[in-house]
Design a protein around this nucleic acid. Structure first.
Length: 301
DNA sequence: CCCATCTCAACCGGTGCTTG
DNA sequence: CAAGCACCGGTTGAGATGGG
């Protein structure tokens, strides 16, 4: 029923035109698309892109329709799909200030004026609470060593203040090496402490909408070598047993407060079991200064 | 007044020990 | 074997304090 001149046949999969010769070598059960003059087909990917574009450039009518459907919906699965769609279209990732995205700030104190500022604050509080726990570790050492313990904690505290409590980890505006997210604010789960990556590919953008912001607070900064079970007791013991050696507090600092030993994980990837990892015994004390000559002699025996 | 800092209370849930 | 409990892995939020 179609006009033969100008009509073409192509593969559904990738849009390759099927010419007379090629037709005979097309695999069995291939799906074909018949096009008339002026029509084009770029393959099934264009189909999916059209479908997905709904999420990226939603039309007002679509959102309205989804809201209407959701308000009457009783089936949990469809409720979730519709709610997820509405959540996605409510995202305003690019917006940064209260003026640009007021709903994002709902429930936050008025002093928070932009998203990065709030995220920095939330990271800072987490790190600060680690420091508090380290400080209270002073109770682990005997009274004679307590002063030295607090001196070491004091040194860490100064370094931490200089580093603004590593608040840049959550700040999408920070320099590349200092943040854990993309410049748009996407965080990816780094997977359980004993696994290299996240099998579920969890990701989140707390900058996108209020819901994501709230949900992000359930993500954890998980100490690979555990803070309370391992690092703090090891630090306390190191100070107690120093015998003149100098505790390498910067090593402990890295374990306690930096991404060298912290993994950002989705709550499902947060294993609360004992990690059974120990601090590196070779790094607890600073290597004693070795005279240059001796060092050279050791390199070339 | 705002900001940084600290303290306390509350919540979720896992581990491992004791006890009945 | 289950229940209870202390402790640990984390988080947030309210409120007090002190300084520029």
């Amino acid at each position: 029923q179609l006009p033969v001149p100008g009509s073409t046949l192509c593969l559904y999969e990738d849009g390759t035109e099927v010419t007379g010769d090629y037709f005979w070598s097309v695999p069995d059960d291939s799906e074909l698309v018949l096009l008339t003059a002026g029509q084009t087909w770029q393959g099934y990917v264009s189909d999916i892109s059209r479908f997905l574009s709904v999420f990226q450039e939603p039309h007002a009518e679509l959102i309205q329709a989804a809201r209407q459907l959701l308000s009457d919906e009783r089936a949990p699965l469809r409720q979730k799909l519709l709610a997820d769609l509405l959540g996605t279209v409510s995202e305003n990732i690019a917006a940064e200030t209260r003026a640009e995205d007021a709903p994002w700030f709902e429930g936050l104190e008025s002093r928070f004026r932009n998203k990065s500022g709030y995220l920095r604050y939330s990271c800072e509080s987490r790190i600060r609470s680690y420091l508090r726990e380290v400080t209270s570790g002073a109770s682990l050492v005997v009274t004679e060593a307590r002063e030295e313990y607090l001196r070491v904690v004091g040194a860490m505290c100064q370094k931490l203040q200089a580093a603004r409590y590593n608040s840049s980890y959550f700040d999408r505006g920070a320099k590349a090496g200092r943040r854990l997210c993309t410049p748009e604010g996407w965080f990816s789960c780094q997977g359980p402490f004993d696994v290299d990556d996240c099998a579920s590919r969890h990701s989140i953008n707390p900058y996108s909408n209020r819901e994501s912001r709230v949900l992000f607070s359930t993500w954890n900064l998980d100490h690979v070598i555990e803070k309370k079970r391992t690092v703090v007791p090891t630090l306390a013991a190191a100070i107690h047993d120093a015998e003149g050696r100098e505790v390498d507090w910067k090593y402990f600092y890295r374990l306690l407060f930096t991404s060298e030993n912290l993994k950002l994980v989705h709550i499902a990837c947060h294993k609360k079991t004992t990690h059974k990892l120990l601090c590196d015994p070779g790094r607890i004390y600073r290597a004693p200064a070795v005279p240059r000559r001796k060092r050279r002699a050791r390199q070339r025996p």
